[in-house]
Computed example of a mutant assay.
Amino acid sequence: MSAGARIWALHLAALALLAAGGVLLPAYHLTNFAKVMVLATYAMGYNIAFGYTGLLSLGHALFFGAGLYGAGMLVQHAGAAAGPAAIAGLLAGGAMAGVVGLLALRTQGVAFMIVTLMFAQAGYLTILYNTAWTRGDEGIVIAREARVLLGFDLSADLPRYFAAFALFAAGLVLKLWLVRSPSGRVMIALRENEERSRMLGYDPYARKLAALVISGLYAGAAGAAYGLLFGYVGASLASTQYSILPLLWVLLGGAGTVLGPFVGALLMFYLIDYSSAVTTASLLVVGVALVLLVLFAPKGILGTLRERWLKWLP
């Protein structure tokens, strides 16, 4: 079997297992896996910017929040249906990433990281202070009757699971196609050696901006889905924490790997979930796990597997 066939077989098998989970998993885990798939979609977008293009951003909560509030406020204040609201959230995330990128990409390295963090913090404060529209810390609760898509009630366990699965599957297939395309190879080349890429005739600024916008589209889609599937839009979901979390998920699963964000999000979610049942110091458990990861698998779980055994893994 060729490397390309193995790659597609692996990722389609992972999707098949997740699809089967909709029938086999109990209700508690249906909700958990739905949340993990939405957050993993967000992390996949982050991985396009960070893992493949080398853009270390601390401002992705702004793009996730743009999708979240783009969908949530349209439903709350304009009475929009779930479908148009989801599209609005997707576009809001991409547009926000484009605006931030036009300015932030004039910097590099640590400066880029700080500038994106400042944009995200400005967005978070805007949400907090415009309570007439955003309801600040209290947030917006999306009514059940507004969470209906193509006749399916997204507040019910099974439709919510398969809506999250559809989002994740589309994001995974598109990402796999992207990173194996010529444009994806250019992103990797920029990550490895920007000056050499420039010498070959590529425009680093334009390519990085495109990667950041694609990343923002993923974040916006995930934010909109989170609000519609779980019925809540709040400022805490646009805080700095939601800029750091996708970075941790990507590092845990493996930066620059297609399935890494899902593996990282799944493991961290259940690590916190199960450790919370036995101790109030669940974040300490996560911290220990991350320290062990840095010591023994610095390229993440799938990154280490690729380095040692699965050279063909994208």
Score class of each variant (00 low, 15 high):
A297E: 07
F33G: 00
Q121D: 00
A143E: 05
L212M: 14
G253C: 05
L310E: 11
A143C: 07
P26W: 06
A166G: 14
L259C: 10
G21D: 02
G253N: 10
L271M: 12
L302E: 08
A14K: 05
R135G: 03
T131V: 12
V179N: 02
G253W: 04
F165I: 03
G234C: 08
A265Y: 00
G151Q: 07
L24S: 02
A3M: 09
L292Y: 05
A82Y: 01
A156Y: 11
Y226K: 11
L149E: 00
L62V: 00
P182G: 11
G98K: 07
G98Q: 07
G123W: 02
R306V: 02
S236F: 13
Y69D: 04
L105I: 01
L158T: 15
A66Q: 04
S155P: 06
L117F: 14
L209I: 02
A265E: 03
E194H: 06
V75H: 10
L154W: 04
V141C: 00
I188G: 01
A78Q: 10
V115N: 15
S275N: 04
M118K: 00
I214W: 03
P204A: 06
A122C: 13
H77W: 09
G303Q: 08
H60K: 14
I127K: 09
A43F: 01
M37R: 00
M118S: 15
G4V: 09
A3S: 13
L18C: 04
R160Y: 06
S215E: 03
A27W: 01
L105M: 12
L55C: 01
Y129G: 01
L158N: 11
A5S: 07
A164H: 00
V115K: 15
L237H: 13
A49P: 07
A289G: 09
T31R: 07
A61W: 12
I140N: 03
R306Q: 10
R196S: 14
I142R: 01
A235S: 12
A221W: 12
T257I: 01
P298Y: 10
T240Y: 14
G256M: 02
H29N: 13
R185L: 02
G98N: 05
L154C: 11
G70C: 08
A235Y: 00
F50G: 03
A104K: 04
Y69H: 04
A95V: 08
A20G: 05
L174G: 14
